[in-house]
Nucleic acid binder design. Structure first.
Length: 114
DNA sequence: CAACTGACGATAG
DNA sequence: CCTATCGCCAGTT
């Protein structure tokens, strides 16, 4: 195949990010894992800062493992909450989101043992 | 090449 | 529940 396949973590992370459905969210760590590096949560942050705006990525659909908004008040928090609510995601005043309800589970990856 | 930087995460107290 | 600390990893300086 082509030799120009970057295949970098950043490329994969951005790719996954674009697949997050409206109204759903993923955690930094989960996104990193889906991109091939379970421990690349911090790289995800880097990717978001580096490409989100440029490539119009749904950066606001990424939250931390505790189900909370990571951005600080006055530093993006408000905007992220607004964008999420706009997609139907309920966000508490403290910035908490119900992961059981909104976490994106690609292809029933977890096989919800019914 | 060493040090630094993050919107993190798991763990310990 | 909360703060502190350490480990991770790629991109920057």
């Amino acid at each position: 195949m082509s030799t120009s396949m970057a295949d970098s973590f950043s490329d994969r992370a951005r790719h996954v990010l674009k697949r997050i459905p409206r109204g759903k969210v993923v955690t930094y760590g989960l996104l990193a894992a889906m991109a091939g590096n379970p421990r690349g949560a911090r790289q995800v942050v880097w990717v978001l800062n580096a490409y989100a705006e440029k490539e119009n990525l749904p950066w606001y659909r990424v939250i931390n493992s505790q189900g909370r908004i990571s951005l600080p008040r006055g530093g993006g928090f408000e905007l992220q909450v607004a964008l999420l609510k706009r997609e139907g995601v309920k966000v508490s005043k403290a910035g908490e989101i119900d992961l059981d309800k909104y976490l994106w589970r690609p292809r029933g990856a977890v096989r919800s043992r019914r």
